[in-house]
Amino acid sequence: MTEAATAPPPLLRLDDYVTGLAWSPTGDRLAATSLAGDLAVIDADPAGGREAVHEVGIHPGGTLCLGWSRDGATLATGGQDGQLRLRHRDGRQRVCELGAWVNALAWSPADPGRLAAAAGPVTALMNLDGEVLGRDTAPSTVTSLAWSTDGRRVGAGAYGSLSWYGPDGGEPVKRFEWKGSILTLAVAPNGKWVASGNQDNSVHVWRLWTAEDMEMTGYAAKIQQLAWDPTSRWLCVGDLGEITCWDFSGRGPRGSRPRTLTGHTRRITGLAFSGKVLASASADGTIRLWRSLSTKPEAVIDLNDQAAPHAPAEIVALAWHPDGGRLAVGMADGRVELVSPDHAPPAR
């Protein structure tokens, strides 16, 4: 019997659709989650063998969100089981019952001991022991959370409003009312803007904190992918296959035409900057790298295995290593791969 040539095994194989990937802030570890409720954590550098944690089903129904604390000492995961789990490097673990699907979590950029979690319509501010310091209930489910860059406020996007809470939670300190359903939020690195991607195929942008707003409408699908470049000049938006880039320099994007980056043939599932390079991931199985948002990609990395045309790669998650030297990529079938931006064979 002869063995057919097979692709090397993936870096990681989770049990189902990859719901999230996150590098620790120092880049020494990569965490990945899936709809099977998996959590996998591996050492980024293989020297001395990969010390891996792979627990299946820690969140029955699916792990929906994850994130590292600012100092990298704690990893939080939230799931469909209504639980938020905190895993500290020293081995301590905390489990917090929030009672409804934990759709989003976000760590404070200022305080490594503070995080916000959204469970159903509730936004809870918590400490490292998983204690809820304050909570508030919005009129509808909170789908996304984003901190202001100074860590003084955290925004919770829902249907009808974007509510802002102080680091201890409780009553909102500010509320941007808007009649639409927010799916994702992105705060500009310079702290001046917050953008939302919405169910009604639009992007809404507010100036912090005047709440002066604008919107970009007419996209081909609901907007789930947003990314600001590190200088906060560009807001990039992904829809069914096109990336539009809005220029916030000078007089801003109002009335302007966006730059469009085309080439992907299916839904954009990840957008992330590393310095000047925007990486875009798509369900079409390719990663494209766009330097300085040039309309010609610097690289197109195709993860489809030509030997296996019946099992196309469907990329659904993307994360740059903090040093920009590699990308972690997650797929609908549970595979996690590392990709090198110079298009070399996957780094192992």
């Binding site: 659709y17 099977a36 509808s140 489910t141 249907y159 169910q199 079938d333």
Partner: peptide, 17 residues
């Protein structure tokens, strides 16, 4: 009008292997 709760639940169901 649409049902936001169904979009979330169904979105999650159809992604499963």
């Amino acid at each position: 009008t649409v049902r936001g709760d169904l979009i979330r639940i169904l979105g999650n169901l159809v992604r499963r292997r």
